[in-house]
């Protein structure tokens, strides 16, 4: 798979996760979101940005619990819960949001 952003071709694996993490850009995120049928809004950007910051620090996506706790802090308890995360990202905050954030897919029994 691959994405087209600003005339550039960004390679991705079979499931749409980009293969070179440095290829990521906000425009690419919008593009990936589009293929996932997701409209990027403020809340979704908040999640994506948190994921990227966390990844910078720890080289891995955060546990869903950690993500939700962070979102609770910034957006309040009505949005900082698992259900709302799935409203934002129907295929799961861990996998779908990671894809848009340009992070590798979490593997294992998750």
């Amino acid at each position: 798979m691959e994405y087209q952003v600003n005339g550039k071709t960004i390679p991705a694996d079979e499931e749409g996760y980009i293969t070179n993490l440095d290829d990521w850009s906000p425009e690419l995120a919008e593009e990936i979101a589009k293929t996932e049928n997701i409209e990027m809004d403020e809340e979704r950007w908040e999640v994506v940005n948190f994921l990227r910051d966390y990844y910078q620090e720890y080289q891995i996506a955060p546990a869903v619990r950690v993500l939700i706790k962070a979102i609770k802090k910034s957006m309040g308890p009505e949005k900082g819960n698992n259900k709302y995360m799935y409203e934002l990202f129907p295929y799961g905050p861990a996998k779908q949001a990671c894809k848009i954030a340009g992070l590798p897919k979490p593997t294992g029994c998750v």
């Binding site: 891995i60 955060p62 950690v66 979490p106 593997t107």
Partner: peptide
Amino acid sequence: NNLGLNPKALRATLED
């Protein structure tokens, strides 16, 4: 581990 969770991230998760 299966996740690729490094010790630093694991420690942070456990502290959380």
